[in-house]
Design a protein around this nucleic acid. Structure first.
Lengths: 348, 348
DNA sequence: ATGAAAATTGCAAACGTTTGCATGATATTG
DNA sequence: CAATATCATGCAAACGTTTGCAATTTTCAT
């Protein structure tokens, strides 16, 4: 039933009495082809409505001009912001982007790695699942020497691979220190699964800041949950189920910070007077809520640009030696807002 | 320098002393192949670490198992929410998704259509640019009978194609009527470029509601801008540059509504007492801001699911007759919040 | 005009699959 | 046991490009 009307390079060749090789070279501006032949060919291509078949070219060249991206979910602010940048940047380089979501499921992540490999993407950028501890399903990419870049949620150092991440230790420490500077003495930290480097490092930063400021680290003042809104609400209930209330909360993501704020507002706990709050990622929502929430900005634009730069680098170079561990750190900075306003002994 | 280690179907055949055709059929569970051969082949495939080459298969079959998606930008709530759903749904059907952003540039949109065609996507879903009036660059897809679905921002009826859209007329009218019900007499509407069906229809809904309630439609109470935050702020300044202030504002998107609220708060205009506000899309930000903003929910999940359903339908059926105009309407509903609380003569 | 160098074009194989048709092997029937 | 039906496998072409090498044409100095 399908009416074949797709024009190929062969049609152009026939029409012009040329060989397919000449047509191919003409379309690709090969130096061996005379200017006037190129013109003739291109004109005919336009006339026939010819569009190159990327799959055929890809098969022959063993490259797809396509990059794969795996993120937990594209509806979350930080990965969404990064995806946007990556997509736009890659477009400039003539690459397509296949965006996939693991939905934080290891099983889905594994499946995606395989389909993206099957699609023969020329490179892969990944922010792993919360629970990815074993990274061996990414081995094919290393074996076949296909550019592979991890960002944000990354594997441990011994999984030799290119890594671009934020300075989560510094972020955790700055956030905590800021709360201390604003007068907090009893700071709760809400963390995530420690399988994930992010939360481990932010927690370490939190500990470090307490220590440097001679405040005790208390195990029971650290809460763990799985970073959904529902869980955050439960954690809030736990935190405020008994006195004394903390005078500061450092949440490891903004959704949690927003939920804590909501809980406080609904339960008459004054923010920032009674309890100060800091979040992480500088989600736009933290800015518009009342009071606005102090948060750690992760420069998603920089992150996205660096990811693309790294991929393009690896694609160009492509000497098999590329698979050593190499880590790039994207800076962070604290955006101070109303949720941490206070007496504020100023920083020295 | 590259070490070829990619295993192909030929390697499996050699290893087992079978022909490639048998291997191919075995891997695809063709009925003509005996159970034990299938087992042997699959086992060897696993052992060799074989991964199918999607490009080779695609070239042969003339299908890529890939769908293209073009949206203005994936960082905006509504398209982002839809993309999420589409991606997850397609994954279930074994399709990859190439997400592209036109950045509301017609030029980029045209380029994207061509690359996606070159990639030989098996289907294309599009939410057009604000300024796309001529849709002829999508003609190739129609000519080649490749499933094509427009959603949200869609072409006019005479561009015979499958269309899935929200009920924007109803949305505009419900929003306006709600403001009237809450006691507003002088309602400003902030619209977008009328090249885009969405804004035209919401505006029509606004007019209709005024008329039905015997309120005058005044041209100078409708403002047009390009829906960025900066422009929204300028529009706010224009609106409140002279008295009388409007007692209601119906903004055609949430970013604008949020900006109007911000302006009001900074300038001591009480919301909702002095001025009520309604937005469009039910962006999560409208819920958390103070006061929370009434907005029109567009059921992005439903939209995403319908898009995928439509694409899969077209892919299955594929009788060339598919290119008649066909329109599907996704319902909307008004989510009432604090920004329109008021006397409220209740609806009959 | 001659020959060699330079510029342009063509031939044919290859990329990794899938599939119509033919062939070979096994089972079934009278 | 032959003849036939059924099942399992193989052959070879095709999908639309790209590219090394060979062949042809043009250019240019002698």
């Amino acid at each position: 039933m399908t009416i074949r009307t797709e024009k190929t390079i062969v049609d152009i060749a026939d029409e012009l009495g040329l060989s397919v090789s000449t047509v191919s070279r003409a379309l690709n501006d090969h130096p061996n082809i005379s200017a006037k032949t190129k013109e003739r060919v291109k004109k005919m291509a336009r006339k026939l409505g010819y569009r190159p078949n990327a799959m055929a070219a890809g098969l022959r060249n063993n490259k797809s001009k396509t990059i794969g991206l795996i993120v937990p979910r594209i509806s979350m602010f930080y990965p969404a912001a990064i995806s946007t940048i990556i997509q736009n940047k890659l477009q400039e380089f003539g690459y397509n982007l296949i965006i996939c979501q693991s939905n934080d499921s290891l099983e889905q992540e594994i499946a995606l790695v395989n389909t993206l490999y099957s699609a023969r993407v020329d490179g892969l950028a990944v922010s792993a699942t919360l629970y990815t501890a074993d990274f061996s399903h990414f081995d094919i990419f290393k074996q076949q020497n296909i550019p592979l870049v991890f960002f944000d949620r990354v594997p441990p150092k011994d999984y030799n691979v290119k890594v671009i991440k934020g300075d989560d230790f510094l972020g955790g420490s700055l956030a905590t220190e800021h709360l201390i500077d604003q007068g907090c003495k009893d700071i709760v930290h809400i963390s995530g699964p420690l399988t994930c480097n992010l939360y481990k490092e932010r927690l370490a930063g939190y500990k470090d800041a307490l220590q440097k400021n001679k405040l005790p680290f208390k195990k029971q003042r650290v809460f763990f949950h799985e970073l959904t809104k529902e869980n955050a609400w439960q954690t809030a209930e736990k935190i405020f189920s008994q006195k004394p209330y903390p005078d500061g909360v450092f949440a490891t993501n903004d959704t949690t910070a927003l939920t804590i704020l909501e809980y406080c507002r609904k339960n008459g706990i004054q923010v920032p007077q009674q309890c100060k709050i800091v979040g992480y990622s500088n989600d736009p929502r933290t800015e518009i809520v009342t009071p606005s929430i102090t948060s750690v900005d992760q420069y998603p634009t920089t992150m996205g640009e660096r990811i693309v730069a790294a991929l393009m680098d690896l694609i160009q170079a492509k000497h098999p030696a590329a698979y050593r561990h190499s880590q790039e750190i994207v800076p962070i900075h604290l955006v101070e807002r109303e949720s941490t306003a206070g007496a504020g002994k100023k920083k020295k």
